[in-house]
Design a protein around this nucleic acid. Structure first.
Lengths: 237, 237
DNA sequence: TCGATTGCGAGAGCGGTGCTCTCGCTTTCG
DNA sequence: CGAAAGCGAGAGCACCGCTCTCGCAATCGA
């Protein structure tokens, strides 16, 4: 019970708006998210909602951060459930958690990883941090495995060292995520990250066709295994 | 000069509508595609457009097929430009063509590979064929390489054979695309397909951040190399 | 050739959207 | 206790998808 009654009422209304927004998002998708509809469910006239949310885009940002947070929680919890020395299994758990959340929340997943809503630009200051939790976790798994000597460094697919500009970008990752991974492994980490979401997106967005290749669970399992191999993550370590 | 004047006028109007729609799509994105705006550009009242297009979704389908066709053309042309016996280079050319088209036409790429527009269901009969041209081309490259003995079959990442249901799905691909690839290679082909689009989507949709990791060209190049290795495509063959 | 049919554009209209502004009421605070 | 700030209601603007009717013009069959 903190703050003045007015402040508490405001916080409660904010909470209620995100709750209703989350429901609408899940049921009808991002593009169909309507501020007026939220207002109706809130039992209030449409203009009143603008006291709490500056615009429809602002509401979208609210829900974006909310969804990133939930996905990040789910992924980190799933990884933490695996013993710290089973690096490959941690990677697999991360993949499974991403996929499970995406299949359970396709509309909210689409908000995060589908095409950006046209005309809408997510404000970086509020979305970068929650949005980097999954790649941070993945890169950390690889870094931990490497530090523990449990990672068989793959032979680079390209012989030359990375160009300077890419090196700068990779340095930025190393600094931002506080990991010590050689260039090639970091590049493979980015690939694994992109590929996991590529596979999940294809499945959730229907690119695999209506029958989803018969057994999407098994397909994803095998894809994860290839990506784990690419990262040099040994079975059982 | 075929058909009655009325038929030709109708065809010309149809053409004009898709042309204007394409421009709007490229400029403002799918969700902002407005039938009324198209009508304005066409110099006609909004209701008149409904003589040609049943609904906004119908217009979207038109543009969807149009975009799939253009991407398919670009990819097939790029692959055909590489000698048929340079299988790895063909694969790389495919990847580069997908990325180049996506970067040149982000809104139309988003229509194809972003989140499906909510409430909109693409009619399968008109979108499946143009939508499968890229994966068909990719799988064919691998099949050609295998048939030519230019493919080093990778050691499977998973020891057990694929489950029955997945086998059925893979059989469907083999039949639909008329290729003879063993299960593991086909699974890797699907992964390569998903991963290429995952990388491209992340780049186009901004997941790599505003600086795009410094040198997105070089990053993608290395990612393609890893995926080519995963498929067993030797350098120079 | 002429009448019937068909295609087509204009216009009005319905219910929906995001968003702005003003007007009172109420809570809060100095 | 009075001024200030927060808040909800309501009207209003411009836009959207979509439907319907009406009248004109092109087309086609007898």
């Amino acid at each position: 019970m903190v703050g003045t009654p007015r402040e508490r009422a405001r916080a409660a209304t904010m909470e209620e708006i995100t709750r209703i927004g989350r429901v609408h998002l899940a049921e009808h998708g991002a593009a169909a998210l309507s501020l007026r509809a939220v207002a109706r469910d809130l039992g209030v006239v449409s203009s009143a909602v603008y006291r709490y949310v500056a615009s429809r885009d602002d509401l979208l940002t609210l829900l974006l951060v909310d969804a990133y947070g939930e996905l990040g929680d789910a992924v980190e919890a799933a990884v933490a459930r695996v013993p710290a020395d089973r690096h490959r299994d941690r990677f697999l758990a991360l993949g499974h958690a991403v996929r499970a959340w995406a299949l359970a929340e396709p509309s909210r997943y689409a908000l995060l990883y589908g095409a950006p809503v046209p005309g809408y630009r997510a404000p970086e200051e509020s979305t970068v941090e929650p949005g980097t939790r999954v790649p941070r976790t993945m890169v950390r798994i690889a870094a931990d495995a490497l530090a523990a000597g449990a990672l068989d460094e793959p032979t680079p697919a390209v012989d030359e060292p990375v160009p300077a500009a890419l090196g700068v970008g990779l340095d930025a990752i190393r600094e931002q995520f506080d990991v010590a991974l050689p260039d090639d492994l970091l590049v493979r980490g980015v690939l694994a990250w992109s590929a996991v979401f590529g596979c999940v997106s294809f499945e959730v967005f229907g690119q695999y066709g209506p029958d989803r290749l018969g057994d999407p669970d098994a397909l994803f399992e095998r894809h994860l295994a290839v990506l784990a191999d690419d990262l040099g993550l040994r079975a059982g370590g």
